[in-house]
């Protein structure tokens, strides 16, 4: 059996005096898996994603991703970790309005020090694969929701991350665009991309994920390898 790509052990995350967002949660994800994190609002889905992305730190417990002890990283190391190993897709795309589509996609590579020409080649390649290359010189504001999310996925894949994290990737899209993104994620997983996605969208989980993890009150309520039906 291959070593886990993600390993959370007894992770608890508390905010101020409120109840813990995550309670002694343990979870492993192996390379090539596509895991959907499901659960009601406040169950700890986004907190879990933030901990894996190194955007947040656990109060107790450990988070290891691709051999990196994420919970031990400082701000700078955490940023380097993200740009090297993680691709992030947000519900509201989080594209930068004052940069062109191409510049948005190139940004993670350029932050990692890749030369502009090389970054441009990679961005063109991704935008072509994702079918939005004709918008390369446009600004995100002129794109439809589905197109923007495709651009966001392209940006997430720019540095060939070991792990793609998606937080409600279809949450801000209409049905047609949602299906479009769903198909895209399925294709990516079929190509071997490890994906962890947080969603309320059961259809998305059903079609994209090979495994679902149900969270309730910060704990794993269910962990099934069969897609939710």
């Amino acid at each position: 059996m291959t070593a886990p790509l993600i390993e959370l052990r007894d992770v608890t995350r508390r905010y101020d005096d409120g109840p813990p967002a995550l309670r002694e949660l343990s979870l492993t994800v192996r390379p090539g898996e596509s895991v959907a994190i499901l659960g009601p609002s406040g169950s700890g889905k986004s907190t879990l994603l933030n901990l894996i992305a190194g955007l947040d730190r656990p109060s107790t417990g450990t988070v290891t991703v691709d051999g990196v002890a994420v919970d031990k990283l400082g701000e700078a190391a955490s940023a380097r970790y993200r740009r090297a190993r993680i691709g992030l897709v947000f519900q509201f795309f989080n594209l930068l309005d004052d940069l062109t589509v191409a510049d948005n996609v190139m940004l993670p590579a350029q932050l990692a020090g890749m030369a502009r020409a090389a970054a441009q080649r990679r961005a063109t390649e991704l935008l072509t694969v994702l079918g939005v290359d004709r918008h390369a010189a446009a600004y995100p504001g002129r794109l439809s929701g589905g197109e923007r999310q495709r651009v966001a996925v392209a940006r997430a894949l720019m540095n060939r991350p070991a792990l793609l994290l998606a937080d409600e990737p279809t949450g801000a899209l209409d049905t047609a665009a949602g299906v479009e993104v769903q198909r895209l994620l399925t294709e990516l997983h079929a190509d071997g991309q490890t994906i962890v996605l947080v969603t309320h969208d059961l259809a998305l989980a059903e079609n994209c994920a090979t495994r679902t993890v149900q969270l309730r009150d910060g704990r794993v309520a269910a962990d099934t390898t069969a897609p939710v039906r």
Binding site: N94, L111, R155, N159
Partner: peptide
């Protein structure tokens, strides 16, 4: 600040 968060999420270090 929100754009700043996006930059950081994409891997911008504090020095950058």
């Amino acid at each position: 600040v929100h754009d700043l968060g996006v930059h950081k999420a994409l891997g911008m270090t504090p020095r950058q």
